[in-house]
Design a binder for these strands. Structure first.
Lengths: 367, 367
DNA sequence: AAGCCCGCTGAATCGTAGC
DNA sequence: CGCTACGATTCAGCGGGCT
């Protein structure tokens, strides 16, 4: 599947732009069958009532924006049907759609997209390492969100799924339907005057995995609920094209600035692995996904005699070889095997820090 | 919540029996509002058109080469609506319903149960430690199933959730919405002539957690798609009553034998961990009355920033307010409310001991 | 400099018994 | 039924400030 190159792009398609307006109208103005993948993070229809306080009496800043309010399930279903149908039209026949949601809306969205003919390939569970607790002890901690990944129709068998790349990212084990990724916080979280710029900003690591798994470099990715542009930022870094649609001009401008600051990875590092690889014992790809080791990072051995660069799927490229951190290390050493975690280092403030250090960091966040 | 004892059981309710027949008809023959919890593992083969009924009770005649997806989904939705409505009728007002499914059916079931008024409390992800791989490498490994847990209606606030028990089960951390449990295999898997007796037998560990979390000993648990009786076996072990409904007499007999072999745990071991909510109420005045906290005692918060003195009637007096331990604490904090038992402390040998400590002493003497 | 402590925050459908 | 008072309840991670 990953061997095909992208089809020629229709001239009318605005690439790497943010279109302001209602996503249904904007999508209907785009040429049919023109985008490779759609990632959608629609309103969840949370229906929050009243306020919630933490045990220490501080107030939880819930989602109470107008765009998340619907009068009834029927109204929400009508909205879902409308934007999903518009999305289906602009999608190429071999394109795929991702939608993310919570139990408030995802069952309705899933049923609606089945109703209009989308064909579910997987439901993916985003398991949060650091969810908000249930402060009143009335329910289980709501520690995940759900993504639905689907093809345009049951007849569409030729969608893009970079199987080898996802496997390489995951210890050469098949990537599972449950993904462990922290929520977006700290530096990555966009702020305005010290408070969160957008109530529902998604982590870049989530989009990284989505894009590496289901698109190829040069593909066109549409996000009809663009918000602060996480999809666009990750697409640019991974050398995919994006089309963002956002109703709120404040968010649109914020996204624009954010994306402009993104440095695209070099072309060779975003190429997806196409062949089988021998197994690294720990998924180095996760470090890349989380941004601990960005694509393009130069790795060296302890004494800086050997060099290699990191690709988006967690493989390395050196002078005359591409492969896992272990394979490339072994090749350069002329040794039968090599522990890449100990062999490869990242330059940090004049020191060569072994990869294993970063692995431990990641493990610490995953408990 | 766990303080309540089970309501008296209607005489007509068949307990710890397997009822053979169509679950909708059998449920409709049971008294309304009579069961505490329902666990359902409905069929999800969307091509079982011949066995499905439309909402208007007409049978769906499928079985053709040009069967149409929309008819199939509609038929499945009608079937879901029928059994869910029957389940809603037999459920007590403060009862809860669990449904398990995969991406093939869970979105439709979830939307349907919302449509008829069930109120979702959590969606739970059963994360399988040992899922079947995706052999063709066309998708992510489908490594989970989804459970939806809901109350009978949005108005029903008094469902059973053994918060303290679930927390105790999980290293004293809140139980999350993602559960890691192996699939049912090995000895636990029922076999007939060496091959599996039922295609979708669920692990007992899954039912164990469901029952411990959402039922009390003596509760009545109904399973409308009983299969080989995992729900019944675990219910018997945990001293809950069950009602199983199963269409297939072969499965029903298998379940019967299986359950008969189960030894119920002793009563003391199935008691759920008591949460503070369930403990008998002790007014602060009783502590004063008994001399544990003499009138005139000076109370402070943990950091000694606030002070108040105890009066003989169990009220506190601070600089500018008099009232209950909660009222005075809230006033001093400028908070809308305050748990005085945790807020106020007594100086004892240089340590600030919370009032709750003295309450526990008194409770111990009261049995 | 490193480490500890404290405060803040995140897509949240988060009371109830008793009068 | 409405009102009032009681009183139960949090995890991981980041960042700032202090030692």
């Amino acid at each position: 599947m990953a061997k095909r190159t992208s089809a020629p792009i229709a001239p009318a398609l605005p690439l790497d732009e943010i279109l302001e307006g209602d996503c249904i109208e904007v999508m209907n103005a785009l040429p049919a069958g023109s985008v490779d993948m759609i990632f959608a993070d629609p309103p969840y229809n949370l229906q929050l009532q009243g306020e919630l306080r933490r045990p220490n009496e501080s107030r939880v800043d819930g989602v109470d924006d107008d765009w998340d309010r619907f009068d009834s399930f029927a109204a929400y279903d009508g909205f879902s049907r409308d934007w999903l149908q518009a999305a289906q039209r602009v999608l190429k026949d071999d394109g795929t759609l991702w939608v993310i949601g919570s139990y408030h809306n995802i069952f309705r969205v899933g049923a609606t997209l089945q109703d209009i003919g989308f064909w579910i390939l997987n439901d993916i569970v985003w398991r949060k390492t650091n969810p908000m607790p249930n402060f009143r002890g009335k329910r289980f901690t709501n520690a995940h969100e759900t993504l639905v990944w689907c093809a345009k129709s049951a007849a569409a068998k030729r969608y893009t799924f970079n199987y080898a790349a996802t496997k390489a990212m995951n210890d050469d084990l098949q990537m599972r339907s449950d993904w462990v990724i922290p929520i977006c916080s700290g530096r990555e979280r966009l702020k305005i005057d010290g408070s969160k710029a957008h109530p529902t900003q998604k982590p870049e690591a989530l989009l990284h995995r989505v894009l590496v798994a289901s698109t190829r470099p040069g593909d066109v990715v549409l996000d009809p609920f663009f918000g602060t542009g996480t999809t666009g930022a990750v697409a640019r870094r991974l050398r995919r094209h994006f089309i963002g649609i956002e109703q709120d001009p404040v968010y649109a401008r914020l996204a624009q600035r954010r994306i402009e600051a993104v440095e695209p990875a070099t072309e060779d590092t975003v190429a997806t692995t196409e062949s089988r690889r021998d197994a690294p014992r720990v998924p180095f790809g996760w470090l890349v996904e989380r941004g601990l080791i960005p694509p393009g990072t130069v790795l060296t051995d302890q004494r800086r005699r050997h060099h290699a660069r990191v690709r988006a799927d967690g493989t390395l490229v050196a002078a005359d070889i591409t492969g896992s951190i272990h394979q490339v290390g072994a090749h350069l050493l002329g040794a039968p095997s090599c522990n890449g975690w100990a062999f490869w280092h990242v330059e940090e403030r004049g020191k060569a820090v072994p990869l294993d250090h970063f692995r431990q960091q990641l493990r610490a966040t995953m408990n």
